[in-house]
């Protein structure tokens, strides 16, 4: 099957099988996930929703846009998240930073002011030693404040 979609703004047509995941459309370079959804390293945006690339069938991307961590810098929220990450010292590890940014995107897309319970629910899945849960939660709160300031003029 050939799936037509846009990956980070570039139109692509990729031959796939039904059993292929979104990771197949993104390229071999990112085929490094655990395949059971626990490592979170395959996070991508499908349309406006953050999904696990390894657990989402490739055919679901037909006619939509996939945004990988590399394509996020076009979005205004990216700069809020990165500013917040730098402030708490999170954006140091090249392995973990991309998926932490996408996780932050996920929770910011759910709510303008993320609830504490939602933050805890998300951060409890962070297993990497480079991703401190408290720092991550603090960074998301800061990013939410920056976004509110940008959108409404107050935090």
């Amino acid at each position: 099957m050939i799936v037509h979609c846009r990956v980070d703004g570039v139109t692509t047509a990729t031959e796939t099988a039904p059993e292929h995941s979104l990771m197949h459309l993104i390229g071999d370079g990112q085929e490094r996930s655990c395949r059971d959804g626990s490592c979170l390293r395959c996070l991508v945006m499908l349309g406006e929703r953050v999904v696990l690339g390894c657990k989402t069938p490739a055919y679901r991307a037909q006619g939509t846009e996939i945004t990988t961590p590399n394509g996020l810098d076009q979005r205004p929220e990216y700069h809020d998240v990165m500013k917040a990450f730098r402030k708490v010292g999170l954006a140091e590890c090249v392995e973990t930073e991309p998926y932490l940014v996408l996780l932050a995107f996920h929770i910011l897309s759910e709510s303008e002011t993320p609830a504490e319970s939602a933050l805890h629910n998300l951060s409890r899945h962070l297993n990497d030693r480079c991703s401190n849960r408290e720092d991550f939660e603090r960074a998301v709160r800061i990013a939410a404040g920056l976004r509110r300031r940008r959108d409404h003029g107050h935090s």
């Binding site: 959804g37 979170l40 996070l43 929703r49 953050v50 999904v51 696990l52 657990k55 629910n121 899945h125």
Partner: peptide
């Protein structure tokens, strides 16, 4: 259902 996978998986499952 909150215990099903990490939140991004819940967008698909």
């Amino acid at each position: 259902i909150a215990g099903i996978g990490p939140p991004p998986l819940q967008n698909t499952a």
